[in-house]
Design a protein around this nucleic acid. Structure first.
Length: 201
DNA sequence: GGTGGGATTAGCT
DNA sequence: GCTAATCCCACCA
């Protein structure tokens, strides 16, 4: 089933954890791609200097201050985009950054969009998954309940259910930020090889 | 195996 | 002017 708007209105940290294992689906003219979310980061309104909303509402971050369940896409480093889900209460400016997906369907299309990249590296980073899924600033502000870009619950695609259905969640510090580095707001599925910083032990 | 730098631009100070 | 919720490749060991 499609995740309802109420799913996103919960406290942001809770949503960041509950998004793990859900399915991101994007239907485009070129075809449909699906990825399972395996890594997220929470960005909070209060006491979080790394959050875009920390210094108040601007043209760029205004959708973060809107209703939960919408897409927040922004441009970064002059060449990439990052995809977020708006969460929490209206007016508080919180969101969850989607950092990695396990490719599920439309692998050929993902590979074509990403150019010469192997299966493991298709969606194992926030900039990478945006390219693989065909997401751009055109999706900024859209409802994830009603647009061609949607999120489905964990049990929506039974044929892809995980072998170990009860994997644990690891919480660590977030990636690529210079402030708020001490906060344990990055979450990923333990042992999943599609996580952005996965290393063989 | 690991590290360092370049690409490229919107938004903020 | 400088930095940024990134990625990739060249180079060294």
């Amino acid at each position: 089933m499609i995740l309802p708007k109420s799913f996103y209105s919960s406290p942001t940290i809770k949503v960041a954890k509950e998004l793990l294992g859900t399915f991101l689906v994007h239907q485009t003219a070129a075809g449909t791609t699906i990825g399972r979310i395996v890594e997220t980061e929470a960005y909070l309104f209060r006491n979080d200097p790394a959050c875009h909303a920390h210094r108040g509402k601007t043209k760029r971050n205004e959708v973060m201050f809107g209703s939960a369940g919408r897409s927040y896409v922004y441009f970064i480093y002059g060449m990439y985009h990052c995809f977020n889900v708006v969460t929490g209460k209206v007016g508080e400016g919180e969101a969850v950054l989607i950092r990695a997906l396990e490719p599920i369907e439309g692998i050929d299309l993902m590979s074509k969009r990403r150019k010469n990249h192997n299966h493991i590296q298709l969606c194992n980073g926030p900039g990478k998954l945006v390219i693989a899924m065909g997401i751009s600033r055109e999706q900024n502000g859209l409802s994830l309940c009603r647009s061609p870009l949607k999120l489905f619950s964990r049990d929506s695609f039974l044929k892809y259910r995980e072998n170990n259905s009860r994997r644990s969640i690891i919480a660590t510090s977030r990636v690529g930020i210079s402030t708020g580095t001490e906060l344990p707001l990055r979450f990923y599925i333990a042992g999943n090889i599609f996580v952005s910083t996965y290393r063989k032990h």
